[in-house]
């Protein structure tokens, strides 16, 4: 198992944000967490990242406990994240943003190769190399956020609502991008509200409601079951 959460609970102050979350992901797979706004999806990713500390439960990556570790150690272990609203460095160039994605790496040649790989995936970024990240379009910013995350050479790429604010046609391209990244050997944990995007890329799916996992299984089965679809997937 690449990633395994066992009974993870997180509090914000005294309010419970997520309760007893258990989730498994195999190496090379695309797993998705789906749910409405405020259901606790981002909290799950932040607990894996080490950005919020968990109250109980365990998180293992590649068989080792990572809960309680600092975010830098978790990134170093091989987990990268495309955060909600992207969190790019707006006044820095596209190039500097990508370089900072490789902040923890020392292998100059490997970094250069991965930079080329990002440009193959997103030729647009190469054209915008000297432009400030804040001046890019929404779709280009999303490319940069994904590119920056890939620059750390992750084994697991987590994406927090990548479809947010993108036009439907861009969402289609996004699905292709996710599949292509996955074909390159990177496991993807996708957190989404957009069931359409999830059903195009993921198989295993966890449905979360007010901080609890209420359903898990194959997204295609869920989508074909009318009552499930109406209840959870919009």
């Amino acid at each position: 198992m690449l990633l395994e959460l066992r009974d993870v609970s997180v509090y914000y102050g005294t309010a419970m944000a997520v309760t007893d979350i258990s989730l498994k992901q195999e190496e090379g797979s695309i797993v998705s967490v789906i749910g409405a706004n405020g259901a606790g999806k981002s909290t799950i990713l932040k607990s894996i990242n080490g950005l919020v500390s968990i109250h109980s439960g365990t998180i293992e990556f590649d068989g080792k406990r990572i809960d309680g570790s600092g975010t830098d150690a978790i990134v170093k272990a091989g987990i990268a994240c495309v955060p909600e609203s992207r969190k790019l460095f707006p006044y820095m160039t596209v190039q500097s943003n990508l370089r900072l994605g490789a902040y923890l790496r020392k292998d100059k040649q490997g970094i250069q190769e991965d930079l080329e790989r990002v440009f193959t995936l997103f030729p647009r970024l190469k054209e915008r190399l000297k432009q400030k990240a804040g001046s890019l379009s929404g779709g280009e910013q999303q490319m940069l956020a994904i590119g920056r995350a890939l620059m750390s050479k992750p084994r697991l790429l987590m994406m927090d609502e990548p479809s947010l604010g993108l036009a439907p046609i861009v969402i289609d391209t996004l699905a292709d991008t996710i599949l292509e990244i996955n074909r390159g050997g990177v496991s993807v944990l996708l957190v989404e509200q957009n069931a359409g995007l999830v059903s195009r890329v993921a198989q295993d799916c966890y449905v979360i409601e007010v901080g609890r996992i209420v359903l898990e299984g194959d997204i295609k089965d869920m989508m074909s079951n009318d009552s499930v679809r109406r209840a959870f997937l919009g």
């Binding site: 950005l51 975010t71 830098d72 990134v75 170093k76 992207r86 969190k87 902040y103 923890l104």
Partner: peptide, 12 residues
């Protein structure tokens, strides 16, 4: 420029 974004790149 972006604290959380920086932390996510492994910057301490």
């Amino acid at each position: 420029q972006e604290r959380e974004g920086a932390a996510l790149q492994g910057i301490s």
